[in-house]
């Protein structure tokens, strides 16, 4: 029973991490219809930025904020100079983000080298609590809390705020929204950068959990995030959240009980979902507003 609880918490925290990466992707894909293959690079940039600032200031909060800020700026650059030229051309978007991914991962290797940089969890959160023989890592609890707060906040913004409304309208009729005097391009840039910042947050939180940061971490997490998106339904935000937690839990349990099977489970699940329910496991039946954008 104890092991179940431990695995459950590990799975949830891993799911929260996957969610942080995939949520950015889901926002960018769902709202703007852009498939961002540079997300892994943004994730790793978040990790390195966190490590860099953390080693300088020794402050966890500052490190996280700096990581998000740096990746936010990167997101602005990506959108303004590259992605914005190719709206409506999905294959070209995939290609250009792949190119950006290559370049920005290489830049990391240029600056910080190709070897992993070890990083410890900050002291105040590195402890564990033992309840009834179950060891609970504080850091994992923090991950779960952050993941769920991000889920609630982003969901609220998408559904209720004016920003969400403008973007949803802008995806359907950008000319009309512009005629109302709204600078839709600015909104697109900010959405892209916000999605990027979420990836940065994921990278920053991932580094202390993994104990090190390395330039190849981006690719693996990007694949996980993509799998979560496909399982959850393209551009379906809450579906992506559910899928992320499902993946996290599944990974934790499979890795414990059938370790040799761990690598292929995610892909297998994705293949099964695509084969039998290509619209995603958690699609709500009705046309979600988010998914309209992808269809377009």
């Amino acid at each position: 029973m104890d092991i179940f609880l431990t695995l459950f918490i590990n799975g949830l925290s891993e799911g929260a991490l996957i969610f942080l990466v995939s949520s950015g992707l889901a926002i960018i894909l769902g709202l703007m219809g852009v498939v961002n293959f540079a997300h892994g690079a943004l994730f790793v940039w978040g990790g390195y930025a966190y490590v860099w600032i953390y080693q300088m200031t020794n402050s966890f909060i500052l490190g996280i904020l700096a990581a998000m800020l740096i990746v936010f700026i990167l997101g602005i650059i990506f959108e303004k100079f590259f992605v914005s030229r190719l709206y409506g051309n999905a294959p070209a978007q995939i290609l250009i983000t792949l190119g950006l991914n290559i370049v920005f991962i290489e830049i990391i290797r240029l600056i910080w080298g190709n070897t992993p940089i070890a990083i410890k969890k900050p002291d105040f959160i590195s402890g564990t609590t033992i309840i009834n023989g179950v060891t609970i890592s504080h850091y994992r609890i923090l991950l779960i809390i952050i993941g769920i707060s991000v889920l609630i906040i982003v969901n609220y913004i998408l559904k209720n705020s004016k920003t969400g409304m403008v973007i949803r309208a802008g995806v359907q009729r950008s000319d009309m929204v512009q005629a109302l005097g709204i600078n839709i391009r600015l909104y697109f840039t900010i959405v892209f950068a916000a999605g990027a910042a979420l990836a940065g947050l994921g990278g920053a939180l991932y580094a202390p959990l993994a104990g090190n940061v390395i330039s190849t971490a981006g690719a693996n997490n990007q694949i996980l995030a993509f799998i979560a998106i496909v399982i959850g339904g393209l551009g379906n935000f809450s579906g992506t959240a559910k899928a992320s937690f499902l993946l996290g839990l599944m990974n934790a349990f499979v890795a414990w009980f059938i370790p040799s099977f761990a690598v292929v489970t995610n892909v297998l699940v994705m293949a099964i979902v695509l084969a039998f329910k290509p619209e995603g496991l958690f699609s709500e039946g009705r046309k979600s507003i988010l998914r309209l954008a992808v269809k377009k």
């Binding site: 999905a90 892909v267 290509p278």
Partner: peptide, 29 residues
């Protein structure tokens, strides 16, 4: 897997990537 109807460009690209990762992981282990 990837030419099934209703699979978008993105999903198909993802699927091929994922399949390649499976093969690479098999080769690694």
């Amino acid at each position: 897997l990837s030419f099934k109807k209703g699979t978008s460009v993105f999903a198909a690209a993802m699927l091929t990537l994922a399949l390649a990762e499976v093969v690479r992981n098999i080769a690694e282990s």
